[in-house]
Amino acid sequence: MTTLPTHTEKKLGLVIDLDTCVGCHACVVSCKGWNTENYGAPLSDQDAYGANPSGTFLNRVHSYEVQPEAGPAQLIHFPKSCLHCDDAPCVTVCPTGASYKRVEDGIVLVNEADCIGCGLCAWACPYGARELDQQEGVMKKCTLCVDRIYNENLPEEDRQPACVRTCPAGARHFGDLGDENSDVSKLVAERGGVDLMPEQGTKPVNKYLPPRLKDDYTNTGDIDILAPLLEPVAPDAKGILGWLDKALEKL
């Protein structure tokens, strides 16, 4: 049913820390690894070893250069996957009812058995979160690893999305953003988490934590706070080093 629920019991989603992400793409690889061999059609590649490779991914890491008015440019790595929007425009446009948003946890899913591969949901998504698999002809998207987070066959620490579990920098956090006392909600409140493209009115569940302010060497004139400690250690050398110093000066 493509009518969006008026209320979901939970709002499961991700909080992505743009300050911490190092752009290693481990989340991209682990996402593809898990999702190509579990729920639904595999994530196919086309011309994978040829001149023009492409493929289906549910999570991609962009990199941006941000140039402040003064000071050096900043490089910010920017992972992007489905934001599981409250007002998901991808769901309402679906003609078959293949796309839906779950009442119990707010996850947006595609029932591939109903999908006709028209691609309209991908057109309706402002974030590029949906990709039509070129092999299977059905729409693929982030499931928030719905087959991990409730999977009692996995050890408890693995019951979170593959991207979160694998992130070596701890830049991705998973939890219930509908519960204001959850760790992720507290993190969003503390760090001023934001919505992407709020003007699109999609009310995304996933939040992005903006990069923290950088240290600014131009304030102190020192390139590094350790610089004073790097002065020559023995300006007035004695003994054999003193003799060497003088002898070399004279040369």
Binding site: V66, I76, K80, L196, P210
Partner: peptide, 24 residues
């Protein structure tokens, strides 16, 4: 507005997420 990084400064793409093209 897409990246929400505009309050730091002017934003441009440094590196795309993949070297080839994709469906999008």
């Amino acid at each position: 507005s897409a990246t929400q990084l505009g309050n730091i400064g002017s934003v441009r793409q440094f590196e795309p997420p993949h070297t080839g093209s994709n469906y999008l």
